[in-house]
Amino acid sequence: MSTVSTSIAPAAAPARTSAPADNTSFSVDFSDIGRSFTAKPERGAARGSTVAPRPVLRDVSLTVQPGEVLAILGTSGCGKSTLLRIAGGLDEPSTGSIRIDGSPLNGIDARCAVGFQEPRLLPWRTIADNVALGLPRRIGRAEGKSRVAALLELVGLTSFADHRPRAVSGGMAQRASLARALARNPGVLLLDEPFGALDALTRLKMQDLLLDVHAAAPTTILLVTHDVDEALQLADRIILLGADDDADDMAGGRTGATIVQELVVPGGRPRDRGSAELAELRGRLLAGLGIDRHGQARGVAATHTIPHFPY
C-alpha cells in the first residue's frame, strides 16, 4: 500500500522500506481542481442557481509525494484554505478530483487530519481529552491512553495534560491541537496557517517542533501559510497560488486562483534562518505575492517578521 517513492525531501530521503504501520505517509493528487462559490453563499447552494458563481480556484493540478512537506503560499483570500479544506473533505471541489494514496477521497477521510488556524479545542475537556478526540475510532482504551501520553510528551505538554484549554497559553493550545491531529496517525497532515495566530517567537518554536515531529514520523504535510519565511523554513516545495494576469478576460470578472509559481527549496532541514541562499527565493516569492522587496541588490526581504516586545 505505502510504496515508498523517492521524495524530493532530503530530510525524508532515508525512507524506510518497511515503514511501520504508524509511520504511513500518502501521496496526494489534485487533478484540475476548481471551486466556485455562489455570490450569496446560502446553505446547500445549488451550483446552477441564478447568481453567477464566483470562481475561487481553477485548474489546480498537483502531486504531493509521500512524506513531502508542501507549503501553499498565497495572498489573503486567494483560496489556499479552500484547497486545503477540499483535501480534508470539509469542502467539495466544483470540478476535478482528488486522490489520496491513489484512491479517491470521499468525504472526511480517516487518512487525513486537519490542524486549524485556531486551536479549536473543546473548552470543557482537558488537554489530554482533547488530544484523545483525534484518536482513530477502533483504537483500544489503554492503547489510546498511551498514545495520548506519548503525543503530549512529544509536544511538551505532559505537565499540562489535566489543564483546561482556557488555562494554557495560545502556543500550548496550538501544540495540543497539533497533537490532536497527530493522534489520528494521519497519512496526510493538513495544516491551515497553524501558527498564524501566534506571536513571532512562539511561531518559530512551533516551526521547529513541527520539523521534529516530521522527522520522528515522516507524514505528508500540506501547509497553508501566508508567511514566506515559514514556507522556506519548513517546506520541501512551495507552490504559490494567485490569479493569472492575462486570464482576466471573462467580462472583467475574476477567474480564480491557480498555481502561478512552484519552487523546490534547496538544502536539508533544519535550515539556517539567515541563509543568503534562501533570501533570493524569498525575494522571488514576495514578488509573486505582489510585495516590492525594496532592495534588489542586497536581497533583504522587506517584510521580515520582527518579534514584538514584550511578548
Binding site: L90, I108, V114, W124, R180
Partner: peptide, 26 residues
C-alpha cells in the same frame, strides 16, 4: 468552528451531538 473540528476528526450524527454540541449547550 468546534463543530467543524469535530467533523474533521470523523465525528458525526449522535457522536458529534454528545461530544461537541450537547456539552456546548449545557
Amino acid at each position: 468552528h468546534l463543530v467543524e473540528a469535530g467533523r474533521a476528526f470523523g465525528l458525526g450524527g449522535i457522536r458529534l451531538f454528545t461530544a461537541v454540541q450537547l456539552p456546548a449547550v449545557i
